[in-house]
Design a protein around this nucleic acid. Structure first.
Length: 334
DNA sequence: ATAAATGATTGACT
DNA sequence: AGTCAATCATTTAT
């Protein structure tokens, strides 16, 4: 399980840093400018999608211009009847070519993984990407059809005044289709990359952390050292601390767990004793006056070597540990 | 560049 | 359910 996620992380990293996504569909590199390795890859999702949309609009504009020219032409009605039968031919081939891979095994696999992981935010974003992807794909199809039709109209028309063989027209159509499908490739690749980026960001986020503010640490330390004899805050206390520190209850729990284990631990720097460590901490924070008894600031025998406060049989002074319900692990509400 | 500190995660235990 | 212990992955200090 853990291995798997690490593997995924690695995979995503490779894909993002290196070359194009190679998955269920072998994608040729996008024909074009970027000679060096990934300039485009550094763009974020928004840029990529915007790029796609720009391309689409250009294509549509072009088609629109031709359409207008055609509409005004006197030969239009005659041409259309002829074009209809051609359209039937090419239209099928276009559809056939485009419906081949939209399901996209790579995306399907990603979807399945996402479902398994059940991350709502993640899934929402993925849905958004997918939606945009399908929208764009549709636009492309439409643009391709229109453009093809209109180019053919023009050629047909021109064949009246200059020699243009049907073969030549077919060739032209082929060129257009190839052009469009290469653009489509880019769309797919961009979508895959966007998903990859999204995924890697999510996986990263699991381990991302920010240190608490100095103030928050101060508050936590104060409580800790003020309750050294029993540093187990009740649920209510945790909630209060969480509120004061602007962190979650889980984070408070994590902090106390870490603190307890680490304050006792024998690992504070090779040549530093426990007392030194504690003194160091105190000096750093200015000291915490024990709210109860005022004694015992970090006196080692309060923490028996095995790290059990429970066994320390601490005298009274301990607020009753009214443990409430709750406290869930893992909270990333930041 | 390397070591230490630190917040989060995970599995076991009770 | 809460905790400990070990560990991971990042941030901070040296």
């Amino acid at each position: 399980m853990d291995d798997q996620s690490r593997m995924l992380q690695t995979l995503a990293g490779v894909n993002l840093a290196g070359h194009s996504v190679q998955g269920g569909m072998a994608l040729p590199p996008p024909h074009g400018h970027e000679g060096a390795d990934g300039d485009g890859r550094k763009q974020d999702i928004g840029d990529i999608l915007h790029q796609i949309m720009t391309i689409t609009d250009q294509s549509l504009d072009e088609a629109q211009a031709k359409k207008h020219a055609l509409n005004c032409h006197r030969m239009k009605p005659a041409l259309f009847s002829v074009l209809c039968e051609i359209k039937e031919k090419t239209g099928l081939s276009i559809r056939g070519a485009q419906e081949e891979d939209p399901p996209d095994p790579q995306l399907m696999r990603l979807d399945n993984m996402l479902l398994a992981e059940g991350v709502s935010d993640y899934r929402a974003k993925l849905t958004q990407i997918r939606q945009i992807y399908h929208t764009e794909l549709e636009k492309y199809e439409q643009a391709c059809n229109e453009f093809t039709t209109h180019v053919m109209n023009l050629l047909r028309e021109q064949s009246r005044t200059r020699p243009i063989s049907p073969k030549e027209i077919e060739r032209m159509v082929g060129i257009i289709h190839r052009k469009f499908s290469s653009i489509q490739m880019q769309l797919k690749q961009s979508t895959c990359e966007a998903v990859m980026i999204l995924r890697s960001r999510f996986l990263d986020a699991r381990r991302k952390r920010r240190n608490f503010s100095k103030q928050a640490t101060e508050i936590l330390n104060e409580y800790f050292y003020s309750h050294l004899s029993n540093p187990y805050p009740s649920e209510e206390a945790k909630e209060e601390l969480a509120k004061k520190c602007s962190i979650t209850v889980s984070q408070v729990s994590n902090w106390f767990g870490n603190k307890r284990i680490r304050i006792t631990r024998q690992t504070p720097r090779p040549h530093q004793t426990l007392v030194d460590t504690l003194r160091h901490v105190i000096n750093q924070t200015g000291g915490y006056n024990d709210g109860l008894g005022g004694n015992s600031l970090y006196s080692p025998h309060n923490l028996n070597a095995n790290g059990g406060w429970q066994d320390a049989t601490t005298p009274s002074s301990v607020t009753s540990p009214t443990e409430g319900p709750g406290s869930v692990h893992s909270d990333t509400s930041n």
